[in-house]
Amino acid sequence: MAPRIAVVEVTRHRPDRPAYHAKVQLLNAAAADAAEHGGWSVSRLAAADRTPAELLAATDDCDAILIMGGEDIDPRFYGGGTGYPGETRHFAVADAGQIALVRRALDRATPLLGICRGLQIINVALGGTIVQHIEEGLHRNVDVPIDQILREHAVRLLPGSSLRRSLGQAGISVQSAHHQSVDRLGAGLVPAGVAPDGLVEAVEHESAPITGVQWHPEAPDSPAEQLPLLLAALQSQLAEARVADPLAA
Rank of each mutant, 00 (worst) to 15 (best):
R17T: 09
D147H: 05
D107S: 14
I172W: 05
L185A: 01
L229S: 13
I115D: 07
G83K: 09
R108D: 15
R242G: 08
I115R: 08
V144K: 02
Q132E: 14
H178T: 04
P85A: 09
E135W: 03
R151A: 09
H216C: 03
W40F: 15
A192G: 10
P18G: 06
I149A: 14
P223Y: 05
V8C: 04
V194Q: 14
G83F: 11
L27G: 11
E204F: 02
D221V: 01
D74K: 03
V194D: 11
M1R: 14
A96Q: 14
P220H: 10
H139S: 03
D74Q: 06
A224Y: 05
E135S: 15
P159Q: 04
A46W: 03
G118T: 10
A22I: 00
I146G: 00
V243N: 02
A219H: 13
V7F: 04
A35G: 12
A241T: 10
V10S: 04
L234Q: 14
P75K: 05
A19R: 11
L247V: 11
R103V: 05
A232R: 15
H21D: 13
A30F: 01
V124P: 11
F91M: 05
V102F: 11
G38V: 08
A244N: 10
R184A: 15
S181M: 14
D147G: 01
D245H: 13
P220V: 11
Y20L: 13
L238T: 07
E136T: 12
V131W: 08
